[in-house]
Every structure is written in C-alpha cells, then in structure tokens.
C-alpha cells in the first residue's frame, strides 16, 4: 500500500469541479484509492462520497492507494493534488 499526505490549498476546497476531475483520475486505475479527511473517509472513485467529505482549504487529507498498479496511481494522484488542489 502507498500513502501520501496533502494540505488543501484551493480556496474553495474539494468543491464540485475538482471532485469530478479527481474521480475521473482515480477511475483510470485498478487500485483502490481512499481519501481520508475531515474525520471521514471516501472511495475516491465515487463522486457523491468525495463531495460529501466537505473538505475545505487548509485541511490535511491522506490518500491511500492499494492494488496492482499502485505505483502509477500513487504518482498520478499525487500530481493531481499538486496541480488542482
């Protein structure tokens, strides 16, 4: 399993638009991708779950990736957060 921490910098947090993009990104991989933050946890491939985390600017999240393509997924998710959130 791979894991990274990230502090949300986007002033609006993980709002509708980046949530949509995030789910699309996670769906490209076979590995299970889980986002933990704001005291909750969500499957990153499920839009409504990700939105319902209510993650805002300044919150720290952790992203766990587990599966066969976890190395590639880890790098893709990490750069997605860096670029979009």
């Amino acid at each position: 399993m791979k894991e990274f921490q990230f502090t949300i910098k986007d002033p609006a947090g993980i709002h509708a638009r980046p949530a949509g993009l995030l789910v699309k990104k996670a769906a490209q991989f076979q590995s299970a991708v889980t986002i933990n933050g704001n005291g909750k946890s969500a499957d990153a491939k499920k839009l409504i779950k990700v939105m319902s985390l209510g993650i805002k600017q300044g919150m720290e999240i952790s992203c766990q990736i587990e599966g066969e393509d976890e190395q590639a997924a880890f790098e893709a998710m990490k750069s997605f957060f860096d670029d979009n959130l």
Binding site: A16, A19, V23, K24, K46, L47, I48
Partner: peptide, 9 residues
C-alpha cells in the same frame, strides 16, 4: 457533474 452523479455507484 450531473452526468457523473448519475453514474455514481
């Protein structure tokens, strides 16, 4: 986003 919500498991 609406389309994706409608695809949501």
């Amino acid at each position: 986003i609406h389309k994706m919500m409608l695809e949501d498991d």
